[in-house]
Amino acid sequence: MTGILSPFVRLYVAVFGVVERLAGDWFLGLVARLVFASVLLLYFWKSALTKIGAGYAGFLEPTAGVYAQILPQVTEQAGYDISQIAFFPYGLIVLLGTWAEFALPALIVVGLFTRVASLGMIGFLAVMTYVDITGHHVDPGTIGGFFDNAPGSQIADQRVMWTFPLLYLVVRGPGAVSLDGLFAKRLRHD
């Protein structure tokens, strides 16, 4: 039996060996960042834009709606009057969360501090999921579950798919076609 399969196994190993060598250390990191950019960059930036105030200093003044999004129970307890919510820790959480929603996706797409930014984005997704489930009380159908034969659930299924390219970037990095790759190359030559 081994004799019959040996030519096919050798062909398989040879073909995919070439694919692996061509992909090198640049392809999958670049693709993971492009997938992230095409699916999530504008999603998070549009979300972040709804959270900042008007004018040039708007990034320092989150809107009232952001408090209800990020801290729904705290905001409800304050009667939706954000002036009644303490800056530390709640206002700081809202401010940093809003900035992270702009900065982390941008860093990932350009490939700068990619591993840390990707890890931060995974944490962001975890917190977002926790707030959706406990603070906004989404229904079980929206939450879904792993291996539930319902691939359209917006929380379990969608967010695990969002997390995979980020996890790849944490473990393997952004690849040579990135600012991290460029800086690493320059450091090796200095």
Rank of each mutant, 00 (worst) to 15 (best):
M1W: 10
M1G: 15
T2C: 05
T2F: 14
I4N: 11
L5S: 12
V9M: 09
L11N: 05
L11T: 11
Y12A: 09
Y12G: 02
A14P: 00
A14D: 14
G17K: 09
V19Q: 10
W26H: 13
G29T: 03
L30A: 10
R33N: 07
R33T: 04
R33Y: 05
L34S: 05
F36N: 01
A37Y: 04
S38A: 15
S38M: 14
L42V: 09
Y43N: 12
K46A: 12
K46R: 14
T50Q: 12
I52S: 02
G53Y: 00
G53C: 07
A54I: 06
Y56C: 05
F59R: 07
L60D: 02
A64S: 13
G65Q: 10
A68H: 10
Q69P: 00
P72D: 08
E76S: 15
G79L: 05
G79Q: 09
D81I: 02
I85D: 04
P89H: 08
G91I: 03
G91E: 06
V94E: 03
V94K: 07
G97T: 05
G97C: 09
G97R: 04
F102N: 06
F102L: 07
A106L: 14
A106Y: 00
I108S: 01
V109T: 08
G111D: 04
L112I: 06
V116N: 00
M121A: 11
I122Q: 01
I122K: 01
L125G: 10
L125P: 02
L125T: 12
V131P: 05
I133L: 10
I133Y: 11
T134M: 13
H136R: 06
H137I: 02
D139F: 07
G141S: 09
T142H: 11
T142M: 11
I143D: 03
G144K: 02
F147M: 15
F147D: 14
S153E: 02
I155V: 15
V160M: 15
M161G: 08
M161P: 00
T163D: 05
L166R: 00
Y168I: 10
Y168G: 08
L169E: 03
A176T: 14
V177L: 15
L179W: 13
L182E: 08
L182N: 03
